[in-house]
């Protein structure tokens, strides 16, 4: 499920602004070149192929300890949620009347779990975890969801190899417009 994206067709709309576009093809020489070292400090995203994953590693056991201390107060002892997002369970519910979407049941890539925890969690101290802490937290979440075994150790090599249960659950490209209305004007629906 790569989901190719179609940008909206704005051909007609563009006419409104045709006379109001900056000239193309000019180098203004504004701003500073970003050196490789500078870029490295900003370049934190992790894609499914594992590119950009840092050194370090974390085990399920390390993750269990970290989770109890830094995560459980918001996400529940077993990841059952309350007050915040539920992180565990929900498998088999996606086509039901009450789908439960969690890291285990819904997320397509394990790399996204690492990436999100690294940027945003724990909510009360975001960005404070070391890479090894993030590997460990990810390992424990995946373990609680039955995705990796209790002895798993995650790092830049092993994390991208984890196959998520719902990896094939996403479809594309965007099939819309998908609903049709005939725009009846008189005595409709009789």
């Amino acid at each position: 499920g790569q989901g190719g994206a179609q940008p909206s067709s704005s051909g007609a709309s563009q006419a409104v602004y045709a006379g109001d576009r900056p000239a193309a093809g000019i180098q203004y020489g504004i701003g500073a070149a970003a050196s490789p070292a500078q870029v490295a400090a900003w370049n934190i995203d992790v894609q499914p192929d594992g590119s950009n994953l840092p050194a370090g590693s974390g085990s399920v056991a390390q993750g269990r300890a970290l989770y109890a201390q830094a995560c459980a107060s918001c996400h529940g002892q077993q990841g059952e949620g309350k007050p915040m997002d539920r992180l565990v369970g929900g498998k088999g519910t996606l086509n039901s009347a009450a789908p439960v979407k969690t890291v285990g049941s819904y997320w397509p890539y394990a790399t996204s779990v690492y990436d999100y925890i690294h940027r945003a969690m724990p909510f009360n101290a975001p960005g404070t975890l070391s890479p090894s802490d993030v590997y460990a937290a990810t390992a424990y979440l995946l373990y609680m969801n039955g995705i990796v075994p209790e002895n798993a150790v995650l790092d830049a090599r092993t994390l991208p190899q984890v196959r998520m249960p719902n990896q094939d659950g996403f479809i594309g490209p965007d099939p819309r417009p998908d609903a049709r209305n005939a725009a009846c004007m008189k005595d409709c629906g009789r």
Partner: peptide
């Protein structure tokens, strides 16, 4: 990049359990 927002959140779950990705 398959960020958390575009996978876990802003995807659209269909009745068959599949989710539409990248509906912009």
């Amino acid at each position: 990049f398959y960020t958390r927002e575009e996978t876990s959140k802003y995807s659209d779950l269909m009745p068959d359990g599949k989710a539409r990705l990248f509906t912009f």
